[in-house]
Design a protein around this nucleic acid. Structure first.
Lengths: 199, 199
DNA sequence: TTTAATTCTTGCCATTTGCGAAGAAAAGAA
DNA sequence: TTCTTTTCTTCGCAAATGGCAAGAATTAAA
């Protein structure tokens, strides 16, 4: 394997290592299976109706996932910053058509493996299985937190949380996408930002 | 293994089989590891602050999961009917303290294995690994759908969906629990049921 | 640079939902 | 059955949010 490829994999190796579920050596051999891939701004990593076949690590760039509601409006379901995994769990693991789109916001450089490769690695590397499970569980847990905040917090509180915890999102996407992610209209978000609820 | 135990496991075996991921033989040997357990009405299968150590199959009865919001109000996060798995993903797999409670609504009879047993089975039975992954992925996907419906649908539409798809819930728990699950107050739910939005 | 498209803000008004409280209804306990 | 507790409904009012539309601001394209 070329030195250059090693350099490219460094972030992925670190990402694998940080889980504390895989050894350095295993992390390196896992990362060695990943192939590079560029996605230019506005291009789609996944289109609804397609079956996702790529388990993607985002090295640089920024992505957004969205679905369409019954009236055809875009509803943002997720944002992805660098050094994160980007894939649609349901389509990828169930081999079903995705209901979501994943689009590059900026030019992105990625590393990916296919479903088949992932399963081979799961089969041969118990550590990677644990890692894969951990990814799912963490995502699950984050989603639960999100449901809870949708139920118990006001839109204003959810906005402030997002601003505090994920300020980078605001540097990459228009407010209307953030609004739909928060479950409100762009009008409401504008009012919230204005601080019209001053007391 | 006693005949009686086999009888008790029948629903679990069917449940495992229906995934199409495990053979009948494997399903039987998996089910053989499960131990029975009763949870009387109002008792807790899991209390917040505890670390969940049981992967539970609910044979008969009905359960409810709930968390507390910042003001201490109960927020229902899930309902569990018979022939379903009942466990808190995050606490169980991450070995962390649960933020949720799971309480028996009626007298329940369950079958369960521990975290350790589950991992042993995962290690020795690839088919069961696939099953376990499928359970996680399905739950993940259902949660996503829920978030989307919270964002794109009115409380009335969410109520009608729940009534249509999960009518059994209404036979087991008071409306206030259903209200908090839908993300509204019991007052609002009452108005929606009244049909005040008649047109 | 000029034009066009997109995004963001604002105002008006309607709708949805919440809050607190009171009473009715139902369920559970004595 | 009678009493007590819980649940459910209803009311008046306030707050949050949406829909529509117009214009301002920003960004992209020509």
């Amino acid at each position: 394997m070329s030195n250059r490829l090693n350099m490219e994999s460094k972030n992925l190796i670190d990402f694998l290592r940080r889980s504390n579920l895989v050894s350095t050596q295993t992390a390196e051999s896992i990362a060695g299976e990943f192939a590079p891939k560029k996605v230019m701004a506005n291009e789609f990593l996944l289109k609804d109706g397609m079956i996702s076949d790529e388990y993607v690590f985002l090295e640089t760039g920024f992505m957004r996932a969205f679905a369409h509601d019954t009236e055809g409006n875009e509803v943002t379901t997720n944002f992805y910053a660098a050094n994160q995994l980007v894939f649609e769990v349901s389509s990828f693991f169930n081999r079903t058509r995705s209901r979501e789109n994943i689009q590059a916001v900026d030019d992105c450089s990625c590393l990916f493996i296919t479903y088949e490769q992932l399963n081979k690695l799961f089969h041969s590397l118990p550590e990677f299985r644990d890692f894969g499970r951990s990814v799912l569980v963490k995502g699950f847990s984050a989603l639960k937190t999100r449901v809870l905040s949708m139920i118990t917090e006001t839109a204003e509180a959810r906005y402030e949380m997002l601003l505090k915890n994920n300020p980078e999102i605001f540097q990459h996407v228009p407010l209307k996408h953030i609004a739909s992610y928060l479950g409100i209209t762009d009008t409401s978000l504008s009012r919230i930002r204005k601080g019209y609820a001053k007391r």
